[in-house]
Amino acid sequence: MTDMTLTVNGREHVVTVEDRTLLVHLLRDQLRLTGAHVGCDTSQCGACTVHVDGKAVKSCTMLAVQAQGCEILTIEGLAQGRELHPMQAAFHEHHGLQCGFCTPGMIMMALDIARRHPSPDAATVRAELEGNLCRCTGYHNIVKAVVAGAQRMGEPA
């Protein structure tokens, strides 16, 4: 067991974890942030995507102890009270989800795409979403939502 400190959605947490605990299990089971989903167990689906120190990673593919001292951002950290983040709003408007299971991971990856490509076209978004699977195959509207959300994030508030 290891005692560790990490910041999640701006709030510092001191936790004790087994060394083998995955980051996604720390988030879901100990911190009760169940937005990051475990979809595949093989690092392929991206439903568990969160940001670690500003970059999208698969939280099922790193240990919680590796996040010692890191800043974590999860889907729960995006909305300001009842006001959705522009990327969340874009997913809502463009119906960028069907069952919703992949959506937290899609949105966290979408923010990472917007960070690296301020005004991405649909082809860029499709290529960048390679590691996020939607089993409803709702990609068409997901891509629309990411393009629109990234656009809106670039506009002055």
Binding site: S43, G46, T49, V52, K55, A56, V57, K58, T61, M62, M109, D112, I113, R116, E128, E130, G131, N132
Partner: peptide, 9 residues
């Protein structure tokens, strides 16, 4: 290589 999340680690 892989996908963006894989490439970040």
């Amino acid at each position: 290589i892989g996908d963006p999340a894989i490439r970040h680690r």
